[in-house]
């Protein structure tokens, strides 16, 4: 019963996110708006973490299962993959290094600024 209520609640929040996304003047994913709605509900204390625990544990344990169909869709685009796998792989790897470097150095810089101000 608890899990059924949690699932219904999560689907209603997602639906609400989609509705808000539809009304926005710019395109922004409804699933992300649903995420903000849930964060607000948790922050306001309207929903407690314990009330969602079972579903949260289940979805985090098997999270990647829900990405499988979106990935399998690549069979529809095998031609793009065959002709563009070199740029796809090289861009992915090069940008991985750049992203890692930028994130790490920005954190180190901000921690350095904070420690300097604390002195």
């Amino acid at each position: 019963m608890r899990i059924l209520l949690q699932l219904s609640f999560l689907f209603i929040v997602t639906l609400l996110g989609e509705a808000v996304s539809y009304m926005l003047p710019f395109t922004f994913p409804g699933t992300l708006i649903a995420m903000f709605i849930l964060l607000i509900l948790l922050g306001a204390g309207a929903v407690k973490t314990e009330q969602l625990q079972e579903s949260a544990d289940f979805f985090s344990k098997y999270m990647a299962l829900f990405f499988v169909p979106a990935g399998v869709e690549i069979v529809e685009n095998l031609e793009i993959l065959r002709t563009s796998w070199i740029p796809l792989v090289s861009i992915s790897i090069i940008s991985l290094f750049i992203t890692f470097l930028a994130a790490a150095k920005a954190v180190e810089f901000s921690e350095w600024l904070i420690s300097r101000r604390a002195k």
Binding site: L7, L10, F11, V13, T14, L15, G17, E18, P29, G30, T31, L32, A34, M35, F36, I37, L38, L39, L42, T49, L52, S55, A56, F59, S60, M63, L65, F66, F67, V68, P69, A70, V72, E73
Partner: peptide
């Protein structure tokens, strides 16, 4: 596949649970 794909909504929403 589309049925499983539907669950992306709750999965995304629950990211705020871990935050």
């Amino acid at each position: 596949g589309a049925v499983i794909n539907m669950f992306l909504g709750p999965v995304t929403a629950l990211l705020s649970y871990s935050i």
